[in-house]
């Protein structure tokens, strides 16, 4: 019995770490074939910076997917968030913190709206958020009058530093503040999913909604919260996007939601709900950046990158299924 227990835990550990192992393998592969600059600290920082936008948005998406839903409006929400932040800075005279919070709040509002529509109208999340994708994109364009909103560099203050490479005097930070934010948020989300009632209820709904209802879980309320959180994370991703561009661009991040969903799925999230992990999601996002970065440095054209990324998604999920059949 003791022995059995031990092997079981080993398997469990291996299961949780398998996306990390996959990341390692992909990374080493590029170290072998890409120029020697690939494995440098500088390049790793670049990879981390490039992962941040998708990574932050994917934190919220992980929760949505665990609950058995999906959110297609994330790309539009990122764009909306950049536009709202720029508008607040440029036209409302807001400070950087107020502007950032405003962007996130606007994003969270649309997440809330999706959640309410899904639970009240009983329309599947795919459709509601598909509609919301267009609604939010439209709203972003409306706020920007179909144009980018440029912001006075003087008003930006620290807002353009979130994802910039660290200047020499602040190299003690190791990584740009935006990346740190992603890491801290990821830890918080992982804890929320594991140690709070909201988190456990999210798993229960995704695993079996009827059971959750039978057990007195307020299914509707949890779902609304989950989509609101997903919207808020979309808003934070928008903040990062804004920091990078320093303009409010309503046409940015088209199709980003698919990268975000891919990150969750590569990391072991199941579109049927009940499964997924924050660690896996981050690794999924990193794998995609590593491929992109490696291909660029190796001089592969864009179309090759896309084919490889597509193949990786399918292979990752197929492996995941295989692993499931083994353990079940």
């Amino acid at each position: 019995m003791q022995n059995k227990l031990k092997t079981f835990n080993w398997l469990g550990l291996l299961n949780t770490l398998s996306p990390v192992i996959a990341l390692f393998v992909v990374f080493e592969l590029f170290v072998l074939i890409a120029p020697s600059s690939f494995a440098t600290a500088r390049n790793m920082e670049t990879i981390a910076r490039q992962t941040t936008i998708v990574g932050i948005a994917a934190l919220g998406m992980t929760m949505v997917i665990i609950s058995g839903g999906i959110d297609l409006s994330v790309g539009s929400i990122v764009a909306l968030s950049t536009v709202v932040i720029a508008w607040l800075l440029q036209y409302a005279g807001a400070g950087p913190l107020t502007a950032a919070l405003g962007g996130v709040a606007a994003a969270a509002f649309f997440g809330l709206l999706s959640g309410v529509l899904i639970t009240r109208l009983r329309v599947v999340p795919f459709i509601v958020t598909l509609g919301m994708m267009l609604v939010v994109r439209g709203a972003a364009k409306g706020i920007g009058r179909e144009q980018k909103i440029d912001v006075d560099p003087a008003r930006l203050r620290w807002l353009d530093e979130l994802l910039a490479s660290l200047p020499a005097e602040r190299s003690w930070m190791l990584l740009p503040p935006g990346v740190w934010m992603m890491i801290i948020l990821a830890i918080a989300m992982a804890a929320l999913l594991r140690y709070t009632r909201l988190g456990r209820h999210t798993f229960a709904i995704g695993s079996n909604e009827q059971t959750a209802r039978l057990c007195g879980v307020a299914v509707e309320r949890v779902k609304v919260l989950v989509y609101t959180l997903c919207g808020a994370f979309g808003g934070l991703a928008g903040l990062m996007q804004f920091s990078r561009l320093t303009v409010g661009d309503p046409t940015v991040a088209v199709g980003l939601e698919l990268n975000v969903i891919a990150a969750v799925v590569i990391g072991g999230g199941s579109l049927n709900g009940g499964e997924g992990s924050i660690l896996g999601t981050l690794v999924g996002a990193l794998i995609m950046t590593v491929i992109a970065s490696g291909c660029t440095q190796r001089g592969y054209p864009n179309w090759v990158q896309e084919i490889i990324t597509g193949a990786i998604i399918v292979i990752a999920v197929a492996f995941d299924r295989l692993r499931h059949r083994r353990t079940a």
């Binding site: 798993f203 229960a204 695993s207 079996n208 009827q210 059971t211 959750a212 039978l214 009940g274 499964e275």
Partner: peptide, 8 residues
């Protein structure tokens, strides 16, 4: 179907 969340 209802009583238990089987994957949990």
């Amino acid at each position: 179907e209802e009583g238990l969340a089987l994957s949990l």
